[in-house]
């Protein structure tokens, strides 16, 4: 495995601006390497900063110190006009899903594909493939607001994967799922990772903690990320 592959963070520090102008530090000196081809799970108590870490890894937030490197490129240092198009290589599953409720299921999946310069036929094929993968093929034309919570979450996963991303960052992807669907999502993440994709999941779902598809486990507490099990060295 090339050391410059995957998604790495070095000395990552982040804090939300406080009310008195002081920063409320959430992450400090986070260093980790998420390898391609493996599923990494980040656990931690509610409010520990799992979502913030995923947003930092996905380029939605900029660290106040340290950097995020994707395939050895310092993406967190890039200005927005370079970071935004880079984000097309990232598939993000938001904790609150961030679907557009009045659009149909298929249209929600179309959203990440529109700016990529793809042909219509390629877009349609990708959408159909992903909808079938998350067992929503029959609901393609339904508006999102008619779906159940679990179906919406699977749609959010499909949307993250529809653009064939190099990095998948999933925030609580099994929160609204029954056991069968949770197991299927684990398997799906594992299958995606086996194609050489970096998969990072932030969750405190015990079903994921014990899943065999998870290769690397990390725990986030008190602003620090520590490897659980065999330690991973950053490149």
């Amino acid at each position: 495995m090339a050391l410059n592959a995957g998604l790495a963070c070095h000395g990552l520090r982040f804090g939300w601006p406080g009310e008195q102008g002081d920063d409320r530090i959430l992450l400090q000196a986070v260093t980790a390497w998420f390898q391609p081809g493996r599923v990494s799970l980040v656990t931690g108590a509610t409010g520990a900063g799992k979502s913030t870490l995923l947003h930092l890894l996905g380029g939605l937030l900029r660290p106040v110190a340290g950097e995020v490197r994707a395939e050895d490129q310092p993406v967190s240092r890039w200005p927005a006009r370079h970071r935004d198009p880079w984000r097309r290589r990232v598939g993000m599953v938001f904790q609150h899903l961030a679907l557009v409720p009045d659009l149909s299921v298929a249209e929600n999946l179309l959203l990440p594909l529109v700016p990529r310069g793809m042909k219509w036929s390629a877009m349609q094929a990708a959408i159909t493939r992903q909808l079938e993968a998350v067992e929503l093929g029959q609901l393609a034309a339904k508006p999102v607001y008619t779906l159940s919570g679990g179906q919406r979450q699977r749609l959010a996963i499909a949307r993250a994967l529809v653009g064939a991303p190099r990095f998948v960052l999933a925030d609580e992807p099994t929160a609204f799922q029954d056991d069968r669907q949770a197991a299927r999502i684990c398997a799906q993440m594992g299958a995606v990772a086996r194609t050489g994709v970096v998969v990072v999941i932030g969750s405190h779902d015990p079903r994921l903690r014990n899943a065999s598809e998870v290769d690397d486990r990390w725990h986030l507490a008190a602003g620090r990320l520590t490897a659980v099990g065999p330690p991973q060295a950053a490149p």
């Binding site: 198009p85 880079w86 529109v114 700016p115």
Partner: peptide, 15 residues
């Protein structure tokens, strides 16, 4: 929020 979602999915400001 909608534009934020698009931005998160790789839409640039120019897009």
């Amino acid at each position: 929020a909608y534009w934020g979602v698009l931005s998160a999915m790789g839409w640039t400001t120019a897009d």
